[in-house]
Design a protein around this nucleic acid. Structure first.
Length: 341
DNA sequence: GGGCGGACGGGATACCCATT
DNA sequence: AATGGGTATCCCGTCCGCCC
């Protein structure tokens, strides 16, 4: 699968704009430090006694130049004060446990930088494209955060955020689905598909699940790692069919449910909502009058599956197959008789 | 009899395609 | 765009044969 290397920080294809890059040529202000570049012509140098204030200013210019040089080389990782960083306008992850991350950063420092962009409305501030959890951990530890700064459009920001999530693959299905639903409020489907690397069919299902399930119910269940599309779809179907007396949300918020892990909470809810085995119709297991297990029967709207255990009744399966055409003929004859009657 | 490793099957998910 | 369904793949539990 080919992905846009929007970050320009890929190990194999480093983004290294040329010095004539129009992007660089036009950036004569330095958003990283909020200062404008002063041309250091000889006349400036002659004012040797210009005082500490100007010297400090030039120091900042030097540092900004260094940062811009490293940015141009696609490898700039800078330390930023966490107070000047805002979360992405597009939240993706439900609040979760960051203890492991905290311990790792405490021991080894922040190994992987976060990606930020200059805040589109407030100069001197930044917005996170990805690395929200790392930012939280570093903030809790009271450290400066290592960050890569990129000028990103809204679209690029969410694509970057989505791609990072996909590469980590630790976002649960429902978190991805919610992220997709949030993206849908602002972006066309093709942007969402490219951001999240999802199939359009799956995207459609994700969005319908989010529409079908009350937001507070999803919050109460939590991220439910390991629970995928089909399970959530099953829940949405069950919720739709649930009687009004069945106060599902209340049930999930009960202390009994909340004591469980998120995924177990989900499973418990499914078990709670699933109709008990039907009294009517064919039994799940067909048995002979003597109690011998003959076959297992699964029924759905579209089909009936009969599974015969070859070990238990070795010749029975072959016999049934052999008899099917005869049975069908008998069935047709019966239908014919009914019509004529 | 107990322990171990490979084969196997079932369940769940991801990916994909066809149809409406 | 929505929906339904098929296939591939992975994971996990169970079974079975082999060895000690």
């Amino acid at each position: 699968m080919s992905r846009k290397d929007i970050l320009g920080v890929s190990a194999t294809v480093p983004a290294a704009p040329s010095p004539h890059d129009p992007q660089l040529a036009k950036s004569r202000t330095m958003p990283l430090l909020g200062v404008a570049r002063k041309d250091r012509d000889p006349a400036t140098k002659l004012t040797a006694n210009i005082g500490n204030a100007l010297r400090e200013q030039n120091d900042r210019v030097e540092r900004a130049e260094e940062i811009e040089r490293r940015l141009a080389e696609g490898q700039a990782v800078i330390d930023l004060d966490t107070n000047v960083i805002d979360p992405s306008f597009m939240q993706d992850r439900m609040p979760g446990d960051i203890d492991g991350l905290l311990a790792s950063i405490k021991e080894q420092g922040q190994q992987v930088p976060i990606l930020v962009r200059p805040h589109p409305q407030q100069s001197g501030r930044y917005e996170v494209a990805f690395g929200h959890r790392r930012l939280r951990a570093v903030t809790e530890l009271g450290l400066a955060v290592k960050a890569v700064v990129r000028d990103l459009t809204d679209e690029q920001l969410v694509v970057a955020q989505g791609q990072e999530n996909n590469e980590r693959q630790d976002l649960s299905f429902i978190e991805k689905a919610r992220f997709a639903a949030r993206l849908k409020e602002r972006f066309p489907r093709d942007v969402i598909i490219s951001s999240m690397s999802v199939d359009k069919g799956d995207l459609s299902k994700m969005l319908s699940i989010i529409e079908a399930l009350p937001a507070d119910l999803i919050d109460a269940i939590g991220p439910a790692p390991g629970i995928g599309l089909r399970s959530w779809q099953e829940l949405a179907d069950l919720i739709e069919k649930a009687s009004s007396a069945d106060n599902v949300l209340e049930r999930v918020l009960s202390s009994e449910f909340q004591a469980l892990q998120s995924a177990d909470r989900f499973k418990a809810l499914i078990a709670h909502l699933k109709p008990r085995r039907l009294e009517r119709g064919l039994p799940e297991v067909m048995a002979s009058p003597a109690g011998e297990r003959l076959a297992q029967v699964k029924q759905s709207k579209a089909k009936v599956e009969i599974m015969i255990d070859r070990k238990a009744t070795p010749d029975f399966a072959a016999f049934v197959l052999e008899q099917l055409p005869t049975l069908y003929e008998a069935h047709r004859a019966k239908q014919k008789q009914k019509k004529e009657a």
